[in-house]
Design a binder for these strands. Structure first.
Lengths: 335, 335
DNA sequence: CTGAAAGCGCTTACAG
DNA sequence: CTGAAAGCGCTTACAG
């Protein structure tokens, strides 16, 4: 069943059928009605390969996710899909390893599938700097800032990680903690980790809390098992810690389990703070004290920027989205 | 940059370039070398729209996921992607609402994107029965059995939910529990819930444990907040319960939090058992006693069946994948 | 308002 | 082993 069959069955030419299918204005109501009747009756769906070949583009939007089991990104994906569906846009999601090269993948996607636009959930600025320029369609990076790169078709929205980390340290300092460990900070999203680390460092300096990066920080990937192992390493090296700041809720949950298995209760024996504000962290025992990233706003502003970029070639925007420090049950007040 | 440019630059015809690009055997080594050199030099990538238009198909595999924040499916997606990548197949993931019509969506996908094959993560057999027949490409349904439908191009792999539920009840019975509530069982995956419910019912009958479905079961969707609310409803209706069997780990975690907020500790005051064997449930406090679905095997057998279906049009297979009852810390022994 | 025709970038019989 | 040409199913100037 092709557009030719519809033309034959309706008694019109293929050009007219195409116009009806694409809602062009210059078709008479009568014609539109009769063509649509046949389309309906036959359950006809145009072949998008032909359509896109002709239009030199595909209609869909790609979402490239760095890391498969990342719950923050799962949340964002859900919201993006809902918003795009409302805007009648189709979205396909592509998962990459946490350490993969998302820019190289995007380039391949552009050649093979010709999306209209791309969302990057997570991204390494160095990879963008090195390889993004051949990509000419509108793109949006979420959870990192691409302002410094200055690409004309790349917007970005992120939480102010540095400020959030500072607030966490202030909270901990206010509760009397002076021995704080930092958990997490993998290579792949190094800028993000770096901003959070810098926030910690600045706040510690300001509050006169000692903070030896080499000793008090333990990197790990975004997973509970890795955080579990890293927590043991960190605590064996720094048994004096009274608080651990994990750079994601998933890591915080892994840390809490590790601490329990080491005979320590949270928050009675040691304090844990997370980051992200995942649903899981608000239903755990104890509920996490954490930084909630506003995923709804990240998604909304991202979709808005991407669609504007596609429709009107609007210039890129780079914005910080407000965060919120949520006080759960995982922080103890030291006397 | 098109195949024509490559032909011009290399001094050959487009047909020869196409043959080189597609690894056809009847090209001389010399020609292949020279054409590839130009392709390399220009960084040429063929236009897949044109290729697929001509070939009447796309090369990629679609993964349709029912429910966005479903962690079991996230695990399966990750494994499927890894296996498909090893097989040099490309995969795009499409998320649908837990209550959406995945068969209608698949049909649209077939028309618009012409995938070579489709994975369904979760699926309602009634929707398949009603609408699957126009789909002619190989498909695989995971976490439900499609044997009874008898479609020639639809394989399925699932855990034996009935047997697993029976084992859970046996475990609970063996620990002295005689007042057991069942949490979960939404409309969308009704067959799955139904099989688990039937397993409970059978085991209860066999062990002479009373089980009033209308009273002791509380449905809810696959989410912590919904499970949280449903747990309160269930316990207010049945305050005599000593154990709750949640049909997913996510629900079990929501239930544990709800119970704690009602002043009950797990497992000291009430027992909770989950289902799925998610990583999250093995790092929670307490660790969940649960049924581990073998996601690696589900993924491996699924990929195997789909690729065989694509390559050799192999007949469909329907298999049960073994499960494992994991004893965590969430079940109490009643005296 | 409508239709015949060109062309998007490929693949593949067909002929040599 | 190689090339000229037809055709995949659409869209869109162009002409009427």
């Amino acid at each position: 069943m092709t557009i030719k069959d519809i033309a034959r069955l309706s008694g019109y030419g293929v050009a007219t059928v195409s116009r009806v299918l694409n809602d062009h204005p210059d078709v008479s109501d009568e014609t539109r009605r009769r063509v649509l009747a046949v389309v309906e009756e036959q359950g006809f769906q145009p072949n998008n390969n032909a359509k896109h070949l002709k239009q030199q583009s595909s209609t869909s939007i790609a979402i490239i996710v760095k890391g498969t089991m990342n719950l923050l990104f799962a949340d964002l994906v859900e919201r993006l899909q809902a918003l795009l569906r409302d805007a009648e846009e189709d979205a396909a999601v592509y998962y990459l390893d946490e350490d993969a090269n998302e820019v190289a993948y995007a380039l391949q996607l552009c050649r093979e599938r010709r999306p209209m636009g791309i969302f990057f959930l997570g991204g390494d600025l160095e990879l963008f700097r090195a390889g993004f320029s051949p990509i000419t369609i509108p793109c949006v990076l979420l959870t990192n800032s691409a302002r410094e790169l200055g690409f004309g078709n790349l917007s970005s929205f992120t939480t102010d990680d540095g400020a959030a980390a500072e607030q966490v340290i202030e909270l901990l300092g206010g509760h009397g903690h002076r021995h704080i460990g930092l958990l997490g900070g993998n290579w792949s999203c190094s800028q993000i980790s770096f901003r959070r680390l810098t926030g910690c460092r600045n706040a510690c300096a300001r509050l006169d809390i000692p903070f030896d990066v080499d000793r008090q920080c333990e990197p790990c990937r975004y997973s509970m098992p890795e955080a579990y192992a890293a927590t043991r390493v960190l605590l064996e090296r720094c048994p004096e810690l009274t608080a651990i700041f994990a750079v994601s809720d998933v890591m915080a949950l892994g840390a809490i389990r590790a601490l329990r298995d080491m005979g320590k209760r949270v928050p009675e024996d040691i304090t844990v703070v997370g980051y992200d504000g995942l649903v899981s962290g608000q239903y755990s025992l104890p509920r996490l004290t954490t930084v909630r990233q506003d995923t709804q706003q990240l998604a909304e502003r991202g979709v808005d920027a991407l669609l504007r970029g596609i429709a009107r070639n609007s210039p890129p925007v780079h914005e910080l989205v407000p965060f919120q420090l949520i006080e759960g049950e995982s922080v103890a007040q030291l006397s």
